[in-house]
Design a protein around this nucleic acid. Structure first.
Lengths: 342, 342
DNA sequence: TGCTCTCACTGGATCGATCCAATTGGCAAG
DNA sequence: CTTGCCAATTGGATCGATCCAGTGAGAGCA
């Protein structure tokens, strides 16, 4: 009653009156086994309550059907959705993810990868933390670790990548502001730069340059709610205040909006604010936040596709996928409408 | 260069001039090995770039140092934070979690658990999906699966549990409304009941009964943003409208607030609204949402503590932990203050 | 009948770390 | 000088699924 009987292939084989090898073939869906035998084996599996032992199978070289999913922080609606997309796609393929968070620490990231390697994961989906060295990425590849980078791509590294079309999206968002008459634009949330942020700033810069407008004022504040508020405060203290504040993500924008409001500025009237991400709160807040919908779920799915391809063919040519983003215009860039999409 | 040399204990042993058994002892920190030998072995490990193979170790009966973490949905700030708390606590203990989502489907849940069993997880942290049968939980226990339930506890099941003190919290929240003069109270988001929801409604009911007030009007709307809006619409259509709407969670409350606002009702003035969870948006929206802070991170940590204890001592007495919740009063229950905590 | 050929199935070796019983060398006590 | 003992180390068997080289039965054909 109490003890869990650890049933093995041998138990099933005995029960079905065949050999271990035959049971193994049936379990892996081999066509070499006669239909009648397959049936008998499957009945035996059910009868003895057999549970496949992936660990034992791994020792003979088959993959583990596991992958590591490393994000900087799971308590961030963006990464939570990315994780959901990746997890669903992996599930369909019969894989299951190990979850680990790096908290932006290269040391933690290295420890996590080490632990995942001990578990012989078939591959890794990684949002590289700050300070990740290209040599580190290369070292993993050399040791046979299949790896797809998401959201950020370590400069001078090689390999697969899936992320949002940051630059094109920010260009569209900036064009929108320019059409509304904005000329001086600030960018908030660039305290520490990574490839994704660099692309976003580059997009803003490109759009402004195309229209012969001055480069954006980059505020190097943290990419947090508090950082957004800090940026707003600094903005308010300026003699010639920019008329639009573009934030590196939605959360930063929420912080900025609250601080601006407390200083008596009308969002969308006295100053325009934009975000990136289109998290649920962006539609619900007042006024609604103009932002870029970046489809994190799709990025997670795409990363899985790339990783499974890489596992199947380790020497395939590296692929970089930039998923299209969608401009979502709401009240925070004017138009007087209180909320909701235009 | 290209091939990944799969180094084993034997390689390390050869390099250090000792036997496999000795290397194994060193790696597991046995005190039986002389200090000098330990040093030589550790140097050899580094020299050959050895990576421990947990799968092989598992075959000799040692645990896998993995656990399964099953939540209904990861793209829900509450479960994301719970996951973060659990993940951090597991990391400290040298464990790593498999992540799986059930999407409230008992069938998906069963499939996920099956897959986790194939991977020989040492234990399971589970937020049981709707329709989970107590017999299913009991069956797992019989087969030696160590399991801790979080947030919800399957009725008539046995085992460990960690969750918020729902009933006490809702009593406090209801008392707050009663102090403010509310007499007729509605509860939104009870389309499908689980133990957590039952406790919440029971808390409301208990506080009202204590004050000789009528039982709450339970609106059986879905526990989503849209469900909250639906509840608000139904509320507005009533002849004798309750003066307070208590929502089963913050997200439902946001939906309700938006719908009420669109119908010209002043939140906190014409009608009071409350949530549960205290997600970041609760502090940022206008007016701020009065809610219960439920400490999801702490629940995740606590679940890990219970699970590790259960793994260490499978026949310990079951423990149920209700983590204290904190009443956070903001503008949505009146007082005229626009935002922020009182 | 004798021969080849295919199909269905099988026994034994194997993966890499761990456990156990056994061995070695060194040292103190008798 | 032997004996006993302890600390340090080791070889071999083991866990459970998989791979491989086979075996045997039966069909097809001359």
């Amino acid at each position: 009653m109490t003890a869990a009987a650890p049933t093995t292939l041998t138990d099933v084989a005995r029960h079905a009156g065949v050999s271990r090898a035959t049971v193994s073939l049936v379990l892996r869906g081999s066509p070499l086994v006669a239909a009648g035998t397959q049936l008998r084996v499957r009945e035996a599996v059910a009868a003895v309550g057999y549970v496949y032992n992936r660990g034992a199978a791994t020792m003979r070289g088959t993959g583990t059907k596991t992958v590591g999913l490393l994000v900087t922080e799971i308590d961030n609606p963006f990464f939570a959705e990315l994780t959901a997309g990746a997890s669903a796609a992996l599930d369909i393929a019969g894989y299951i993810p190990f979850l680990a968070t790096t908290e932006e620490s290269a040391a933690r990231q290295d420890r996590a990868v080490q632990r995942l390697r001990e578990h012989h994961v078939d591959g890794l989906i990684l949002c590289p933390s700050m300070e990740t060295r290209p040599a580190w990425i290369a070292g993993l590849a050399e040791r046979g670790v299949r790896l797809v980078q998401v959201m950020r791509f370590v400069k001078d590294s090689i390999g697969d990548f899936a992320g949002p079309a940051n630059e094109a999206g920010m260009e569209a968002l900036t064009e929108h502001l320019i059409r509304l008459g904005h000329r001086r634009i600030a960018f908030a949330g660039a305290a520490v730069m990574h490839s994704g942020l660099r692309q976003r700033v580059a997009g803003v810069r490109a759009a402004l340059r195309r229209h012969g407008l001055p480069a954006p004022l980059v505020l190097r504040t943290p990419a947090t709610r508090a950082g957004g508020a800090e940026a707003a405060v600094r903005l308010c203290a300026m003699p010639e205040r920019p008329s639009a504040l573009m934030c590196c993500n939605d959360v930063v924008a929420f912080g900025a909006m609250q601080a601006l409001r407390e200083r008596g500025l009308g969002i969308g009237r006295d100053i325009a604010v934009t975000g990136v991400g289109d998290v649920p709160e962006a539609a619900a807040c007042l006024p609604g936040l103009t932002t870029l919908a970046t489809n994190p779920r799709g990025i997670g799915r795409e990363a899985v596709r790339l990783l499974l391809r890489r596992i199947a063919d380790p020497k395939a040519a590296p692929e970089h996928v930039a998923l299209p983003v969608r401009l979502v215009v709401r009240g925070s860039t004017g138009g007087g409408n209180r909320s909701g999409e235009l």
